[in-house]
Simulated assay, not measured.
Amino acid sequence: MSTTKPTDAPMPLVSVLLCTKNPNPARLHEAVLSVCRQQYQHWELILYDDASSPIGQAAIRSAASLDTRIRLVRGSVSRGLAHALNCAVQSARGAYLARMDDDDRCAPERFLHQAAFLLAHPECDWVGSFAKRFDDRGGWGDFTVPIAPTAHDFLHNSPFIHPSVMFRAESLARAGGYNESETCRFCEDYELFLRMTAMGMRGANLPLPLLFYREDRASYQKRTIKRRFSEAAVRFRGFSALRLPFMKKLLYTAKPLALCFVPRSVQYAVKRRLARSNYTKGDHS
Rank of each mutant, 00 (worst) to 15 (best):
L274W: 06
F186S: 14
C36D: 04
D136S: 09
G56D: 12
H284K: 01
S129G: 07
A241P: 04
P209K: 07
T68W: 04
G138Y: 03
H156T: 13
T20S: 12
R174Q: 15
S219D: 15
A269D: 12
D125T: 00
I225P: 02
T3I: 09
T253I: 06
V262R: 10
A59V: 06
P209F: 06
S171A: 14
R79C: 09
Q90L: 11
L112P: 01
A116L: 10
T150G: 14
C106T: 02
K255F: 13
E170H: 12
C36M: 09
S181R: 07
R273C: 03
D50Y: 05
H284L: 01
V16W: 01
F229I: 10
A204G: 00
L211I: 02
S91R: 15
P10F: 05
D283T: 04
F130Y: 14
L242T: 04
L119I: 09
C260Y: 02
S240C: 12
Y252D: 01
H113W: 07
P245R: 10
A175D: 05
Q267A: 09
A107R: 03
M199I: 03
R79H: 12
A88V: 09
A241L: 11
S129L: 11
A51L: 12
E109M: 07
S285F: 13
L97T: 01
R99M: 14
Y190C: 00
L66S: 11
P6L: 08
P23T: 01
H121K: 00
V32L: 01
G128F: 05
A131V: 00
I225R: 05
P146L: 05
F246S: 12
S219C: 14
E109W: 10
Y220M: 14
T150Q: 15
G80A: 06
V73Y: 02
D216L: 12
K249R: 15
K281P: 00
P209V: 09
L81V: 08
E180N: 03
L155N: 10
E170C: 15
V77R: 13
P209E: 15
K5C: 03
V234P: 04
L155D: 09
P122G: 05
T68D: 13
L97I: 00
A198S: 15
F261D: 00
R71H: 11
R237K: 15
L242C: 02
C124N: 07
C187V: 11
V127F: 00
K21N: 08
P256S: 13
H156D: 15
R195G: 05
R27T: 09
D153K: 07
L250G: 05
K248S: 12
Y252Q: 02
A9S: 15
L72Q: 11
D189H: 14
G80V: 08
F134P: 10
A269T: 10
D102Y: 03
T150P: 06
Q57D: 06
A175C: 13
K249Q: 09
R243W: 03
A58P: 04
P6G: 13
S91G: 08
V270I: 15
M196R: 06
A84C: 03
W43R: 00
E123M: 10
S129F: 02
M247V: 10
S52M: 11
L250K: 13
